[in-house]
């Protein structure tokens, strides 16, 4: 067969190319996941409507607090550094255990800390505060938006009623992208 030998040669060359490559280093998927979540947190702010009384001035910053997620807070600060949300700068604050969630527009509660549950319970009663969680059960604990990692992708669930009770409005586009829209 005319092409037979050439086929074999090229197949062999391809094989060598694939096998001869050494491998080293560490893939940092945890960091990648944080980067995506930071981008999401920044994006969420643009799809939620706070009433004017939530701000002192028209260009007052959006205050975002993060608890139990310092590394994510660093990533978010990096994202927010050079950009605004609807004309407002974004200020990122790391919350410590026991610190009350005051003077915040959004609060993200990480799942790792023992105090997370108590903070969620405290924050869910607070008007004009967008409560964000990091696990599937965060919605049940009162979060309006919560992450879920599915098939190597970061997705999120939305509970519009939780936002509604806080006096906030979530855009329909955000709900269209959500993995689940949870209605009680």
């Amino acid at each position: 067969m005319r092409v037979g030998r050439r086929w074999l040669c090229r197949l062999a060359a391809t094989g060598v190319l694939v096998v001869a490559v050494p491998a080293w280093g560490q893939a940092d998927t945890a960091r990648a996941e944080r980067q995506i979540k930071a981008a999401f947190l920044y994006k969420f702010l643009g799809f939620v409507e706070w009433p004017p009384e939530a701000f002192e001035r028209g260009d007052a910053p959006l205050q975002v607090g993060l608890f139990g997620a310092d590394a994510l807070a660093d990533e978010l600060a990096l994202v927010a550094q050079r950009r605004q949300v609807n004309g407002r700068p974004v200020q990122v604050r790391k919350l410590r255990a026991g610190e009350p969630p005051t003077a915040l527009h959004a609060l993200f509660v990480g799942r790792a800390e023992p105090a997370s549950g108590a903070l969620m319970a405290q924050a869910r009663r607070q008007p004009l505060l967008l409560l964000l969680g990091d696990s599937e059960d965060a919605i049940a604990q009162g979060a309006a938006i919560s992450f879920a990692v599915v098939d190597d992708k970061v997705r999120f669930d939305v509970a519009p009623l939780a936002a509604d009770q806080a006096g906030l409005k979530i855009s329909s586009r955000l709900m269209a992208v959500a993995r689940r829209v949870v209605m009680p």
Binding site: A32, E33, L78, V79, F156
Partner: peptide, 18 residues
Amino acid sequence: LASLADLSIEELADVQIT
């Protein structure tokens, strides 16, 4: 990193972590 934040929310939901 900044560019991830510039993705649309639809695109972001489709980004593979790896």
